[in-house]
C-alpha cells in the first residue's frame, strides 16, 4: 500500500485520500472570459514536472496541498493550505445589473 503523509494526521494509506486538482490562481469570476474560467475549472497541463495539487483526507475532512512528480508519482512534500492562503476568499454572488435600455 502506498503511503501519503497528511499534514494533520500523519502517514496514511493512499486509499484514504481523494485528488482535488491542481492548485492554480483563480481568475476573477466577474471579469474573466468564459474561456478563461473553463480553463481554470476543467483543463490541466499534462506535462512531466513537479505539480502542486489539492488533496483531501476523507476520514477527517481535511484539505491540504501536496507537491508530486507527475512521472515518478513520488510525493515530495505536503503542507497545510494556510502556508499559501492566509485569508478567506469571499465569492460575491450578487448578479451584476445590466442597464435597461431607455425608450
Amino acid at each position: 500500500m502506498k503511503i501519503m503523509h497528511c499534514p494533520l494526521n500523519g502517514p496514511r494509506n493512499i486509499s484514504e485520500f481523494v485528488y482535488g486538482g491542481e492548485v492554480k490562481p483563480m481568475p476573477n469570476p466577474h471579469t474573466c472570459s468564459d474561456k478563461e474560467w473553463a480553463e481554470y475549472v476543467f483543463y490541466s497541463d499534462n506535462t512531466i514536472r513537479i505539480i502542486t495539487e489539492w488533496w483531501y483526507h476523507a476520514p477527517s475532512g481535511y484539505w491540504f496541498i501536496a507537491e508530486r512528480h507527475t512521472a515518478s508519482d513520488e510525493i515530495l512534500k505536503t503542507y497545510d493550505p494556510s502556508e499559501r492562503f492566509d485569508q478567506r476568499i469571499e465569492f460575491d454572488s450578487k448578479p451584476e445589473l445590466t442597464q435597461e435600455p431607455s425608450i
Binding site: L8, N9, R12, N13, S15, E16, H57, A58, P59, S60, Y62
Partner: peptide, 12 residues
C-alpha cells in the same frame, strides 16, 4: 485521536 479508515469505513 486517529482519523482514519476502520474496516474500510472512514472513522475517528
Amino acid at each position: 485521536v486517529a482519523q482514519t479508515s476502520v474496516a474500510r469505513t472512514g472513522a475517528i
